[in-house]
Nucleic acid binder design. Sequence first.
DNA 1: AAATAAAGCAACCGCCCTGGC
DNA 2: GGCCAGGGCGGTTGCTTTATT
Length: 345
Amino acid sequence: MVLINNSHLNLLDDMELSHLVNLIASNSNVDLNQDADEDQNNNSSDEHERPNGRKGPWSPEEDSCLKDFVTRNGVGRWGLIAGELDRTSKSCRLRWCNQLSPDIYHGPFTRKEDEIIISMYEERGSKWSQIAKALERRTDNQVKNRWNSNLSKVHRRSQKKVKSAKGSRANPIRGNSKGSRRPASFKSASTRPAPTLVSISTAGPFADQVSPAASLKISEARQFPGSRYRDPASLYLPPAPAAYPDNSAPFACVEAYLPPAFVTPAAHFASQVHQPANPSPSPAPAFNHLTSLSLFPPGHETDDVNYLNQFPDHPAPLENWTGLMEEIIGVDMEQANGAGRKHTK
DNA sequence: AAATAAAGCAACCGCCCTGGC
DNA sequence: GGCCAGGGCGGTTGCTTTATT
C-alpha cells in the first residue's frame, strides 16, 4: 500500500515523489492499484499491510537503501520504502528507529544509565519509552533488553534480599553449573579485567552480598591513609534509593578498588544504586553510620563527580596500592585475582 | 575440541492510539 | 462515525556470541 495524501505532499517535492513511486513500482514489479485493492479488504493494518513482507535480519544492502531513503525524504512514510524493500512499513520504521538512526548510541550501558533505568523502573514499572527518554540516545528497545537481560535479575535478587534480610548467603563465585556463563567480573584469569572501582554497602540489605573476607576487613577500616574522603562527614551520598523500601536501612559506604572476585554482582548492583544520577549541589545529607574508605591504583583517573567536587586537584594516587589492599583485605592479591577459578584439568 | 547453557540483542508480534479522509 | 495507515509501545521469540566444563 502506498499512501499519498495532501499533507504528505506538503512535505515532499511533487516531482521527487512521482519519481520515487515510479521507481518503486518498476523495481518491485508491484501493481500499486492491486496492492491498494488488497489492502481495502484487510482489516488489520499490521501483517496485512504487506502480506509478503520479508522477515529476518536486515542485509547491508537493505540498510543502505533505507538510509538513502531517509536522507532523501526524511523520517516517515515508511510505506514508500517498504514496497521497494519488500518489507513491512513497520519493519522499516523499527529498523530505522532502533538501529540505523544516527541519534542512537550503540555502546555499552554506563553505570549511571543503569541507575536511571533501575530507579525509573521502580518508580514507573516497564514504561520503556519513558525510561529511554530519560537517557541520552537510547531506544526503548535497548532499555528493555538491558533490563531483561541484566538488570531484572539483579533487581530481583536485591528485592529478595530486602524481603528476607536473613536469607541464605548465596555466593555466585561457587556453585556454577556446567556451561553457565558467569558475570564478566568472574572471567578466567587470562581475560579478567583489572580491578574496578566499586562502592560496597557493608550494612543494610546488601551487606551479605559482599564476600565475607572483603566485608569484614573493609568494614573494620575507618580512616585509612589515602582514603578518598578523609572526612566522612563531608561525603555526599544520595538519599537512600528505592531499593530500600522503608528508607530506613542504615548503610555505610566503602569505596575501594577491589579485585572483581571479591564483589558479587548483587554487591556491584548495590554500589550502583548508591551513585546519584544527578548529584545535587545542596548540602550532603547526614549519615550517622557512614564509614568511608577509598583507594586508588597507580595512574587512576576518576570521573566521579563527588570526588572531583571535593578534590578538584585530583591528589596523586597511592603508590603501593597492591600492598595496601593486601594489608586491608588480608589476602594475597595474586591469589585474589585467581579466586573463582577452578583448576579441574 | 566439543558440548552446554546463559547472556545479549535484533526483530517480530499484537494491541492500541491518533489523525486524515 | 467508521475506516484506514502510520506510528507507539510492551511483550516475546529466536538467533548469535561467549564462558565454562
